[in-house]
Simulated scan of single mutants.
Amino acid sequence: MRSPNIRYFPAVDHLRAYAALLIVFYHGLHLFSYDARFHREFGVDDWLQPANPLVAALAEGHTAVSLFMVLSGFILTYGSLDRAIDAWGFIRNRLLRTYPLFLLLVFAGISAFPDRFSPGAFAQTVFGLGNLAGALDAPPFTSMLWTIAIEWQYYLLFPLLLPVLKTGWLRQLAGMLAVLLVVRTGAVLLGANARDLGYLTILGRLDQFLVGMCAAWLFRNRPLSRRAGAALAAAALAAMLVALAAFNAVGGWPVAPAWKIAWPTVEAVLWAAFVVGYVDAANAATGLWSRLLARIGEVSYSIYLVHFVVIWSLLHSGLRFAPSGHAVADALLATLLLALPLTLAIASLTYRYVERPFLRLRGRYHREAADAAAG
């Protein structure tokens, strides 16, 4: 994904591709296997807890959202480390980047399910609060839109956060993370749901954007060799897989113990280490695999928003794909052979005709720091 404001990193597109593919397989695993086991619409009861640790980690593939959040902080900050931001230009670019496909799905949901429409729910969703109760609920078209709401809440904060963090990156980050953990702890002690607080709100997710921002500063100022980057990425990925398998073993996403107030921070640190190490290690890659991943990363926003519609539609078509008779294996095969190719085809179409025409309208939103100070 090339931008007039940010140096292009092929490895960042790789990471977008990994996150997009992970979320496709995560939803495919759960929705297809649940249908095979219970023959009814998906619910979080009977959450998958596979014995295989890799499949157990995949069962918690919602962590792909965390990777996307860290990446947002990383790439937006890297392009702004030495320059000041024109806030209105930045917001305009973010609108052009995210809203065309977002609005298409909003109106698809309203058109398909007009009984779900209300002016208040529509306004709440369109104006960046779709992650909160009362937003438009017209699945599968709106099922992924809650994360875009949190992204937009980041975008509104970003021009304010960046100059504050520049006064002392590690010190400010540590203080902000401490404040967020204290506030989440207080909210849980007062009766908030620790899972929903950490997963569905900016109070839980801001850790990830902030850590991604700091990761960009570290990447610029503490560069690693390709070998050291590869080692860091491998260690961080291994730690994340272990953490996800353990997370699944103690109940996975549905349970809401108090310790989940710290989970977003754990995800943020591990994914940020992976991002920094991977970009150092893989950014110079030029092989076919790199170009293929970069292409998937380029359409990752479309993949993210349309894949749930594809999986839901396959399930509601009555199609049953069960060559092995084992629910988990068949779910992964159905995702690989049916859902993923369809998602890639549709995402390429929506990218070409919905996203890209508006992306070309983006402009520059940076000013040189010296010019900004003089102004």
Rank of each mutant, 00 (worst) to 15 (best):
A369P: 01
R171M: 07
F32S: 08
A245G: 02
R226D: 08
G375H: 15
V310R: 09
L244C: 01
T201D: 07
V183Y: 10
T185Q: 13
A285C: 08
L349S: 03
D46P: 09
V310D: 04
I303P: 00
L332Q: 02
M69L: 15
L189M: 15
W47Q: 01
R195N: 15
Q172Y: 14
T142H: 14
A239V: 03
A372C: 09
R97Q: 01
A11T: 05
F127A: 11
A281F: 04
A56N: 00
N248I: 01
R226C: 12
A246C: 11
R352H: 03
A64R: 12
S324E: 03
A273H: 08
G128A: 12
I346C: 06
V182L: 14
A138N: 10
A272D: 00
L165K: 13
L349K: 04
D137T: 15
T185P: 10
L165E: 11
V65E: 05
Y78R: 10
A138W: 12
R222P: 00
D371G: 08
P159R: 01
A36H: 07
V24S: 01
A64S: 14
V126Y: 03
H39M: 12
F141R: 05
A243M: 13
A84T: 10
P357Q: 03
Q49C: 09
G61H: 03
A347E: 10
A19F: 05
A59Q: 10
Y304T: 08
I261S: 12
Q153Y: 11
F308C: 07
R222G: 01
L129A: 13
W271Y: 15
L349R: 02
